[in-house]
């Protein structure tokens, strides 16, 4: 995930990159979702400027593209924190105390679902099942699922994110998780 700020100084480069992404998938049948995924993978969210480019290339209106983006919980139009932390609210996790965990996460991070910590380190999101229901409750950080979560383990996990953020780049964080 690149920091948009790196490129915002160079709007042309960003437009170029977006155009390349859209061009590479625009002829796929039903290519809009793959395009949105690629853009979000690149930037962490869908930048506003992307909507116009997609709309033109797919022969749709910006409003239509926006309508699709807003239908899906996964897509975001604003920049998230460095780490997206998802807490499972599914029934199997509920049966193992996820409500308590959810409350603890919100209190300790001092944010609600859909919000980002002031240091921009963590964005908290609800999720409905991660397929780890036999070892609930489950939490996902980036692409990694963590099972049998509890308040203490959650704090440890969050601490690790903060410490690593100071010393390592995103890429290394993946490798050293």
């Amino acid at each position: 995930m690149n920091d948009l700020q790196n490129t915002s100084g160079n709007a042309d480069a960003q437009l170029n990159k977006l155009t390349i992404i859209v061009d590479s998938k625009k002829d796929l049948p039903g290519g809009l979702l793959p395009i949105l995924h690629d853009i979000q993978h690149e930037y962490g969210f869908i930048p506003k400027v992307a909507l116009g480019i997609i709309a033109t290339k797919l022969n749709q209106t910006e409003a239509e593209i926006h309508g699709v983006i807003s239908f899906y919980h996964h897509f975001r139009l604003t920049e998230p924190g460095a780490n997206i932390v998802e807490i499972c609210r599914g029934e199997a996790c509920q049966a193992m105390g996820s409500k308590q965990l959810e409350n603890h996460a919100k209190t300790s991070l001092n944010i609600d679902f859909g919000q980002t910590t002031t240091n921009k380190n963590v964005t908290l999101e609800p999720v409905y099942c991660l397929g780890n229901c036999a070892c609930a409750p489950s939490v996902k950080v980036g692409d990694n699922v963590h099972g049998r979560m509890n308040d203490k383990k959650f704090d440890k996990l969050m601490n690790k994110l903060t410490t690593f953020e100071l010393s390592l780049s995103d890429n290394k964080l993946q490798e050293n998780k």
Partner: peptide, 12 residues
């Protein structure tokens, strides 16, 4: 899409 919570057979 295996959306049902409590299921993981597809994933597995």
């Amino acid at each position: 899409d295996e959306g049902d919570s409590g299921t993981f057979a597809d994933r597995l």
